[in-house]
Every structure is written in C-alpha cells, then in structure tokens.
Write a protein that binds this DNA or RNA. Structure first.
Length: 825
RNA sequence: GCCGAAGUGGCGGAAUUGGUAGACGCGCUAGAUUCAGGAUCUAGUGGGCGCAAGCCCGCGGGGGUUCGAGUCCCCCCUUCGGCACCA
C-alpha cells in the first residue's frame, strides 16, 4: 500500500468480486434468512445521474450490511427499456430505438460497475427484450380471459405533442407528465385494465402497509379517492329519462332546484333535440368540448351553462325542475350529472346566482343559529322544509333517504372512486405489442400462447404523428385469424410501459424461465420485497399499478401474496444550488466526473453522509472533498499503524483491558452497536458514517511508536471494525484495509461485528448535576454510584455547592449513572 | 378547502425510551510544515456579558404538562408535497 489511489483499488476489487461471484445468488436457501433489497429499475436514458447514485448507494449499503449479517441477499438491477425517449431519439437523430436503448444500457451498466454496486448481474433483465415482453403479453391474455382486460370506447386524455393517449395518472394539472403540453379529451377505442375492481382492496391494504411512508400512503388514498354517497334517478317530463345523478349530500335533496349535466354527457344532446334550446346546447357543447382541460377546469374559471329546454321531476316534491348543461360538471366524476342545490353548495350557488335559478334552503345549523344569509351553508345540520324528514340530522337523513330511494327503485347508496380503469393502449412503436388480432368475422381474437411473443418488428416509420407506427408496417399488421384462418389485422397499439414495471422484480427471481413468467416456488422465498427504494414520484403511478398487478397475479394463482413490498423507502432528490439537477439549469453533476476525481467510494460515501436518505440532498463539492479527505486520513492512519499491529487473530494481551486501550475498545464496541442499530430498520445511513469518523478520531492518538501491546491490540480491533462497518458504504477501501490487516478476502462476506456487552459497560460515567433543572456541574464518577453517594459528590463540587448555599433541598431526582437534579427552594 | 411531511449554529445535519442541545462533516480563525500554491498536522469555533470562575439567552412563535421538553399536549406561523369546480 502507498498513497490512497481510489482508481487502482476500485478496479482491483471490482474484478475480484466479479471473479469470485460474491454477489451472485444461485438458488434461494431455505435454511437461511433471506433479504430482498430492491431499487426501482432505471430508464436507460443515456447516462446515470446523481439520483441513481444515491438510490443504488442506499440499496447497496443495506444489501451489503445484510449479507455480512449472514443473510442471503438478492440484489439485482434491470432496465425499464421501453418508452418514448427512444422514439424521440430515433426521430431526431435517426438512430433505431433498439440500438439506442441497448447502447445506453451498456453505458449505464458500465457506470454502475464502476460504482461497485454489488448486483447479481446474471439476473439482469431489460424489458424491451422479447424474453421479457412476451410475458407481458402472456399476462395480458390471462387478464383478458378473466375480464380484467377489456376494450371500450371512452373519453380519454390526449396529448397531441406525444401523439398518444395518457392514463389519468400521467396527467399532472391538466398537462402531460412527460412533455408538459396541455391535454385534451377525446373518445377512443382502447384497452383497459379493470383496476377499479380492486379499488377497495387497494385502499384497504394501505392501512396495513405500516412500513411505507405516511406521505405515500396519503397520496395513494387521495388518488383512489373513495367517496360515499348515493345515486338517484330523476324522471324527465315528456320522456327521454331517467337521468341518474350522484350526490354525497342526499340530505339536501329537497333543496335541489335543477339538474346539471356534463358537456360530454351522452343524454345531453338527445334531450335537447327538438326543443328551442337545441342550437344553444349544440353551440355550448362544441365550445366547451374544444377547450383544453387545463383551461376549462382552471381555478376560478367561470361557471357557464345552458338550459336544455327540458325538465326533470323532483322525486320527493313532484315539482318540475329545469335540466341544464354546465361546464363545471365533470363527466368522469360520479355519473356526470348532478342535482344542483344552490343553498348548500358553493358551486351550485354561484351557478344559480348567475342564471337566476331558485335557491331553497333545507338544512339549518344544528347549533340553532339562524341560517346565514347570502352564502350557502355547506355543513351538516338539521333538516327543515324537507317534508317528513324535518328535524333529522344530516347524517341520519342521508341514511333514511338512501333507504327510501332504494325501496322506490330509483337509486341506492353508492360508493364512487376517483381512480379510473387503467387505459393501457399507446399509439407508440417502442413498447409491448398488445397480443390480439382483429378479425372481420370473429371480432377480437387473442393470440394463442404458443404464438407468443408477438414480436415487435425490427423497424417502423417513426414520425411522431399520425397514430400507431405499427399500423404502417404491413408485414406486422397483416396476419390470419387464429380462430377462422381468414385474413385479419393485428392490434397496432402497444402497452403503457408502466405495465413492464408492474412485475419485473418477480422476474428477477426466475429471469430465464421460458415456460412461464416465473415459477411460483422461485419467487416465494424472496417475497414480499424486504426493502424497496425509489423516488417519491412513483407514489401513485408505479406503486399503485404494481400493487394492483400483484393482486391480479394472486387471483390468477401465480403467487400467494396480497402485497408485494413490505417496506418502502422514498429517497429525497439530489439538488444543486437549491434546484433539481437538470441539463436546462446547467447544474448537473456527472457521477463519472466525481469518480474520476475522488473515486467511487468517496462519491458513494458523500451521497449517504450528506443528508438523511429520505430528505433532499444538496450537492456540495466541498462536501465530497471532505469524504475523500476522510478516506485519505483513514488510509494514512492505517499505513502508520500497520507496523504496530499484532498478527491477525492474536489473543488479547492482559493490558488491552486497561487505560487508553480499554477506552478505545469501548469506543469500538459502542460504535458497532450504534452502526448496527442505524443500518437496521432505522435506516439512518448518515450517522454510521459519522460514527466511523469518530472511531478513527479516537484511534489516531494511539498510533505511536511507544504504543504498548494492549494498545496495539486495541488498534487492530478498531481497524478491523472500521473495515467491516465501512464495507457497506465505501466497499473498495474497506476491502483494501481488510487485506492490509492480513485477513482473507472478502470483507464483503466477512461476518458483521458483534458488540461485546462487557465492553459496553462503563466503569466511569459522567454524572450531570442540575439545580432546578439547570446544569450546574458535570462529575466523573464510578458507574453504579448510589443516590446518597452521588448527592455527596455533588455537594463537593464548588459550583454546585455555591448554588446550594443556604437553600433547602425540596426534592431530589436521581437517574443512576446519568443525572442528579436537586430542586431547591 | 381536505390530507400529509418538515422547521435545530454561517452551511449539511446529530441527539434510540423526556435527562449534558449542536455529534460528525463543511466553512471559518490561529498556529506548525512548505520557496509558493495545494495538501497535511495541532488547537479553537451557537449568541451575549465577564480578566476569570462563571452567568444569561438559545431547537419557527405562544401557552401548557413535568424536578426536567428539540422530544409529550393545545393554539398559531412558515415552507414543501399530494388531492381538488370530486357533486
């Protein structure tokens, strides 16, 4: 060993780990405790960024720790390799998506290997390979058989810029999640997955995900958006009804003075037909329907409407009430139609005021106060003006009314969800072909299993517009019907890439299976995932889809588990100068540059040390230098100490238990305990790094020529401990130290150190003396001192006694070996 | 509006159960070494007062519980995030 040269040692140990297959797992070992450490698989965009470094450093630290604790650890990486950027690259640079993607994977794999992340590379997968996506197709066909997958014409989100439809999850504030362009609504024939069938189970399951962040659980609850209410059907005078509305305030139904339908409501135009209002309604629909979602539903957007020329019959009063079309009624909420109760809803109130509709108050505050004039009263209260229901509190009235409505056969108590069925059709090339055939005679025919995979053609014309590129590839489109043998057309849409990531980590357990997606027996030893690490941005999309997918696979008999992930960890972002790193802001730090300058160990160490892993991390060049300096300090200290150290495994000399040697040994064992706790469920990865620094600081003064045999022994123990507890964080330096200590490779598989209980017991402790809760003295006393003796020692302290002078001690609080508080009058 | 997370030195952040607030690192100051720069080593570093011993103030603000509160309870403020014309 000479000066600390990260480049040399990192390459050396990476090669040795690989040759010795340190991170490979052949089969799950039933005799051992197992740990599945999983990081969200990356999209192969080109190069890894600091967010990846942080993600994988966290995962590798935990995986390496678990491995050293004797557990069998599954730690794998793969590539979320389908997606739009590959097509954009093709359009812009003329590179084939496949070639572009595979080249990126090669680059990024090399970068991960340079970082020394301990993956089992034999299990690596890429979702764009037929080996993988054929099982997307196979699973889709099983879902089709069960009715989980279905085709329907629905109003969907359309991104003109990406030239494709988007799932609701992919629309953020009315804009495309990827390109930020305004999204519009259009009707399409699409493939859907019936996630709403599982909405209740997905929602209930959140309660049991007690090792998931509260933040994510809340986001998922909000996303699913359960709403308890009732549907009621209103008859229409002169026919054309009934119109079904949804409300959560059935108690206010006597205050309903009109109905309002969404612009897209299928009954709207038929109702208006033939009335004097028909033209006005048509114009309104045309105008509102053409506006973008962002525009139409912006905060403070005007509530516009038009009378349809028709009336509904109020089911309780029998009075006719006008039916309107209104732009603030959303087609995909409830039934797309509401009863308008201006006295008890702010939106209805604004609408009624604008158009001169009747306002009838039917709920008064239960406090007995007068109903407030002017503003609508939107809280629960006591019914009045509601016939037989007067005097009932709102909650009771809702129950009663729901029962009566059900009895009369005009409605029922109903639960609706904000979450919608997952539209998975994409008009893109670079994705999994949906394995069905459209036949003139037979309709939609699934591709038989033995004809899978439906291969993506080598190339397709990519222009970025004009619908599905696959439709332009005759040799793909033209086929024969698997059922009748007549000429037929293949489905030309591909699957949303979120399908790919729903089950990839099941495939890691059985990555080369060519018979089924995975063997149940290979998956079950590893599931549920012990720790899943990734960004918060996947809280609603990926993490809801994969929970859903798991439940479907369970119901298909593929697995026997309800939830795939036991513990979720959401890491913070890596930011620079207060903003997320991005090319446009020019604040990107390239991991490769950091590895060149400081080495992989310093880069990893800093990404763990600089902030708790769940919080945002502000990148700091000075900070990573500090980590590099620490490793240099450790290196030099060890080089100096080496000559002093006893042989590996030498028995402790008697004076290893005295004086400074004993103090260092105590520090060593306290450090072991602390780091072991932190790396466990606490997931504190920044404090163990600090603990190793402290241990080095404590050991350094003992490194001197006149060190005695006991001190030298304690030094060996300290350095062996540092090598081991640093192994999850800075694995290359740790191996080099371990080798320098004369130990057999590898520290990566060496047993994790165990704190010696005897070494954790202090014989001298610092006793804090307080007077009236304020610290007035700190005494070093023998451990286990009695209260009386502590009191006596405290009185002997000059400062303490000066504060006690002439005052009576009213009360004494004594915490053995810690604190003595004297309350004086 | 509803829901959630978080507020600690100049900075990133420590503080297992209520018991020494500020570990560790960065930065800064002084010194050593060096031709110089850099690197390294040593010491110091929350604010105020004091020659010193020491005292006072300090974890977003205000109350409370307690011998004792960063930690528990109540109210408020700020920041960030999710949902939101959701019927």
């Amino acid at each position: 060993m000479s000066g600390y040269d990260p480049k040399a040692i990192e390459l050396k140990w990476q090669a040795r780990w690989s040759a010795a297959r340190v991170f490979e797992v052949a089969e799950a070992d039933a005799a051992r405790s197992r740990f599945y450490a999983l990081e969200m698989l990356p999209y192969p965009s080109g190069r890894i960024h600091m967010g990846h470094v942080r993600n994988y450093s966290i995962g590798d630290a935990v995986a390496r720790f678990r491995r050293m604790r004797g557990e069998q650890v599954l730690h794998v990486i793969g590539w979320d390799a389908f997606g739009l950027p590959a097509e954009n690259a093709a359009i812009q640079n003329g590179v084939e998506p496949r070639a572009w993607t595979l080249a990126n994977i090669n680059t990024m794999r090399g970068q991960l290997q340079r970082l020394g992340i301990g993956y089992d590379w034999n299990r690596e997968i890429a979702t764009c390979l037929p080996d993988y996506y054929r099982w997307n197709q196979w699973l889709f066909l099983r879902m089709l058989e069960r009715g989980d997958a279905f085709r329907a014409r629905r109003l969907l989100n359309w991104c003109a810029s990406c030239g494709t439809v988007l799932a609701n999850e992919q629309v953020v504030a009315g804009r495309c999640w990827r390109c930020d362009n305004p999204v519009t609504r259009r009707e399409f024939d699409q493939w859907f997955l019936r996630i709403t069938d599982y909405a209740e189970e997905i929602l209930d399951g959140i309660d049991r995900l007690d090792r998931w962040p509260e933040r994510v659980r809340t986001m998922q609850r909000n996303w699913i958006g359960r709403s308890d209410g009732a549907t009621v059907r209103f008859e229409v005078t002169g026919g054309g009804g009934p119109i079904e509305i949804f409300t959560t305030r059935l108690d206010t139904i006597f205050g309903a003075t009109s109905l309002a339908l969404a612009v897209e409501h299928p009954q709207l135009l038929p109702l208006a037909a033939g009335t004097p209002q028909e033209d006005a309604v048509r114009a309104f629909v045309a105008h509102e329907g053409g506006r973008s979602i962002e525009d139409r539903f912006a905060e403070g957007a005007a509530k516009l409407g038009v009378f349809t020329g028709r009336h509904a019959v109020h089911p309780f009063t029998g009075e006719p009430i006008p039916i309107w079309a209104a732009n603030f009624v959303l087609m995909d909420v409830g039934t797309g139609a509401i009863m308008s109760v201006p006295a008890h809803d702010e939106r209805d109130h604004a609408f009624a005021t604008a158009y001169g509709l009747a306002i009838r108050a039917v709920v008064v505050p239960s406090s007995g106060g007068a109903p407030p004039g002017g503003d609508p009263f939107t809280e629960d209260g006591i019914l009045r003006g509601s016939g037989a229901f007067d005097g009932l509190p709102s909650a009771a009235a809702r129950e009663r009314l729901a029962a009566i409505v059900a009895e009369r056969g005009i409605g029922s108590a109903t639960v609706t969800y904000r979450i919608k069925d997952w539209g998975i059709s994409r008009q893109r090339y670079w994705g999994t072909p949906i394995p069905v055939v459209h036949c003139e005679g037979c309709g939609i025919v699934p591709v038989p299993d033995d004809q899978l995979p439906v291969l993506l053609p080598e190339r397709a014309p990519l222009t970025g517009s004009g619908g599905s590129p696959l439709a332009q590839v005759p040799e793909f489109v033209e086929t024969t019907c698997p059922r009748c043998g007549e000429p037929a057309r293949r489905e030309t849409d591909t699957m949303d890439t979120f399908v790919d990531s729903c089950w990839y980590y099941f495939r890691y357990c059985d990555p080369r299976n060519d018979r089924v997606p995975f063997e149940r027996s290979k998956v079950e030893p590893w599931f549920p995932v012990d720790l899943y690490i990734g960004g918060i941005e996947h809280a609603t999309m990926h993490l809801i889809y994969t929970r859903y997918w798991t439940k479907v696979m369970r119901d298909l008999g593929l697995v026997a588990l309800d939830e795939p992930v036991a513990a979720l960890f959401t890491q913070g972002m890596v930011i620079k100068d207060g903003a997320k790193m991005s090319k446009s802001k020019g604040n990107v730090v390239d991991p490769d540059h950091m590895i060149d300058r400081f080495g992989a160990d310093s880069t990893r160490l800093f990404s763990l040390f600089a902030a708790p892993p769940e919080r945002d991390l502000e990148w700091s060049d000075a900070g990573i230098e500090g980590c590099f300096r620490f490793l240099g300090r450790l290196w030099r200290a060890f080089e100096t100490a080496r000559a002093l150290l006893p042989a590996p495994g030498a028995p402790a000399p008697s004076d290893a238990d005295r004086g400074e040697a004993r103090a260092l040994r105590r520090k060593t064992h306290r450090t072991i305990r602390r780091v072991t706790d932190d790396l466990g469920p606490r997931m504190h990865l920044n404090t163990p790094v600090a603990a190793v620094m402290e241990l080095l600081n404590a050991a350094t003064p003992l490194i001197r020529h006149e060190a005695g045999a006991g001190e030298a022994w304690a030094l060996r123990e300290a350095f062996e401990t540092m090598a081991k507890i640093l192994a999850p964080f800075a694995p290359h330096v740790a191996e080099e130290l371990w080798e320098g200590l004369g130990r057999d490779p590898f520290v990566a598989t060496a047993p994790w150190p165990v704190a010696d209980a005897a070494m954790l017991v202090e014989d001298e402790v610092l006793l804090v003396v307080q007077i009236n809760g304020k610290v007035r003295g700190k005494l070093t006393v023998p451990a286990g001192l009695s209260e009386d003796a502590a009191l006596e020692a405290a009185r002997g302290d000059r400062n303490v006694s000066s504060h006690l002078d002439g005052k009576a001690v009213l009360k004494t609080v004594f915490v053995p070996d810690r604190l003595l508080n004297l309350v004086v009058g």
